[in-house]
């Protein structure tokens, strides 16, 4: 159709062009929110996120923390009668949010993901001790999990040294070519 020849402008058009998913098929039945394990903690529920997405309300969506609470459990996508893939819609929003500096979600969630990706960039694999330390430094949450920490060490479940893969340059190149970072963010970067 002539309409689809124009460059994608709206959130809906952009998602459809990239992935083929069309949120217009959503008829707001609420089945996604009904099965969402985080619904009781979210202020914007799954079906509302899809609705606002379809209405191109990016600002409204990024002002809210709800998209960062999604666990990607895919229960919603599995049961949606119209195959709208709400879990993909939310991932798409998270990617857009990451590109816009001003809208980056709750601090702890953001900090975790940054710390995790930094591990991959640094070593090629996640060195868990490094992950935890990086996370704690970003969030200042030094004393939570303190009760379980000794247990992990005594059970030999955390190595004290990271294992760096040989082809680490290849992994770093992936990050750079994806345009995620040119170099990893420093510890103090929020």
């Amino acid at each position: 159709m002539a309409r689809d020849k124009h460059p994608p402008e709206t959130l809906r058009d952009h998602l459809k062009a990239e992935t083929g998913i069309d949120v217009r098929t959503c008829y707001q039945c609420g089945k996604c929110s009904a099965g969402c394990p985080m619904a009781e903690e979210m202020s914007l529920r799954t079906h509302e996120i899809v609705r606002l997405f379809g209405d191109n309300r990016l600002e409204r969506l990024l002002q809210d923390d709800s998209i960062w609470l999604c666990l990607s459990c895919e229960t919603c996508s599995g049961r949606c009668p119209n195959a709208c893939e709400p879990a993909q819609v939310i991932d798409h929003l998270r990617e857009i949010a990451g590109q816009q500096r001003g809208a980056l979600g709750p601090r702890k969630v953001r900090a975790f993901h940054q710390a995790f990706l930094k591990q991959i960039y640094a070593h090629g694999r996640v060195f868990e001790l490094g992950l935890v330390m990086g996370y704690k430094l970003r969030t200042g949450a030094f004393f939570s999990d303190i009760t379980v920490a000794p247990g992990i060490f005594t059970r030999g479940k955390l190595s004290l040294r990271p294992h760096r893969i040989e082809a680490i340059a290849e992994v770093r190149q992936i990050f750079e070519r994806c345009g995620v970072w040119d170099s990893p963010p420093g510890e103090d970067e929020a």
Partner: peptide, 21 residues
């Protein structure tokens, strides 16, 4: 107004998980 996501037997009842949109 809302479709039930799932139902299952809980004791001698049937438990439904839904959402009032």
């Amino acid at each position: 107004r809302g479709r039930v996501s799932r139902l299952y037997r809980a004791g001698d009842k049937v438990r439904l998980h839904a959402f009032d949109t």
